[in-house]
Amino acid sequence: MSRPELLAGPVAAALGRWGGTGPGGSVLVVDTDPAVADTAAFSDTYGVPLDVSANCVVVAARRGEKVTYAACVALATTRVDVNSVVRKRLGARKASFAPMETAVAETGMEYGGITPVGLPDGWPLLLDEAVVATPSVLIGSGLRRSKLILPGAALAGLPNAEVVTGLAR
């Protein structure tokens, strides 16, 4: 893996497990300006189309006292349907975006750089079908100062990944 200093610890570890073959061999790490890490600013600054950029959001799904954290990935041109699709898929009575402090603490990643690569063990990973169909997708690296570029289909090979039709609109 090239440029491990540009990756959050859990992301570097996950990419290391992938190794140089398979999906891990297809991952590029690019250094970026952390001041423009947010998707719209990044797109404007670097001229990257939003339809090849993906966002990873952390959701807290509640049923009674039990809270399940999950990650959802959608193209930047869409929004994850948390209140209907995610809530039903996770069997929760209520689902909402996890608070920033919780998302950062649970993932070991920086807010604005959270990625599906290197999520905590056991977390569900819900992927919108459009992300998986994208030949090369730009997504966070776990840090605000860099991004990953990889085949969208490679994300479907991550632990606990599920491609969900209609996850995002």
Rank of each mutant, 00 (worst) to 15 (best):
G122W: 12
R89N: 06
A168F: 07
D33L: 04
D121W: 06
M100N: 09
G112T: 10
V137A: 02
F42T: 07
G113W: 02
T45L: 13
V30A: 14
T45D: 05
G9V: 15
G157A: 14
C56H: 04
L155Q: 08
S141V: 07
A70I: 07
A70M: 03
A130I: 00
W18P: 08
P159F: 11
T77M: 07
V82D: 03
V30L: 15
V27E: 00
L150F: 04
A60P: 02
G16P: 05
Y69D: 03
V86A: 03
A154N: 11
L28Q: 15
A153D: 14
K66L: 14
A92L: 10
G113P: 09
V58A: 11
R17D: 13
P151Q: 07
V117M: 06
D31L: 12
R87M: 08
A130L: 13
G112C: 10
T32H: 10
K147D: 02
V73E: 04
D31Q: 15
S2I: 13
A156H: 11
A92Y: 10
V104Y: 02
A12W: 03
V117T: 07
P23Q: 06
G16N: 05
L126Q: 08
G142T: 04
G142K: 03
T78Q: 15
L126C: 04
A105P: 08
F42R: 09
T78L: 15
R3K: 15
G112K: 06
L150T: 11
G112W: 05
Y46I: 12
S2A: 14
P34W: 02
S141Q: 09
A105W: 10
G91W: 01
G19H: 00
S43R: 01
A60V: 08
V80D: 00
G24K: 08
W18A: 11
L150A: 05
L155M: 12
D51Q: 07
R62G: 01
A76E: 02
K66I: 13
S26R: 15
A37V: 05
R63K: 14
R17T: 14
A156M: 11
L143F: 01
P4K: 00
G9I: 12
M100Q: 15
P49A: 13
A71D: 11
A98K: 05
D121A: 15
G140I: 08
V85H: 02
P124L: 08
G20L: 13
T32L: 12
W123R: 10
L28N: 11
A92R: 09
P34G: 02
V163Q: 06
C56Q: 10
E101C: 02
I114Y: 10
L15S: 01
S141P: 08
E101P: 00
T45W: 12
S43C: 12
A92F: 08
A153S: 15
A13W: 05
G113S: 09
T21Q: 13
A153F: 04
M109D: 06
V132A: 13
R79I: 00
A156L: 12
P10A: 09
E5C: 01
R93N: 14
A70W: 06
V86P: 06
E110P: 00
R169E: 09
W123E: 09
A168E: 08
E101D: 15
L75Y: 06
N160P: 02
G112L: 05
E5N: 10
A103D: 02
V48N: 03
T39V: 14
R3P: 00
T77R: 03
G142L: 01
L119M: 14
G91T: 01
Y111C: 12
G22L: 01
G142D: 03
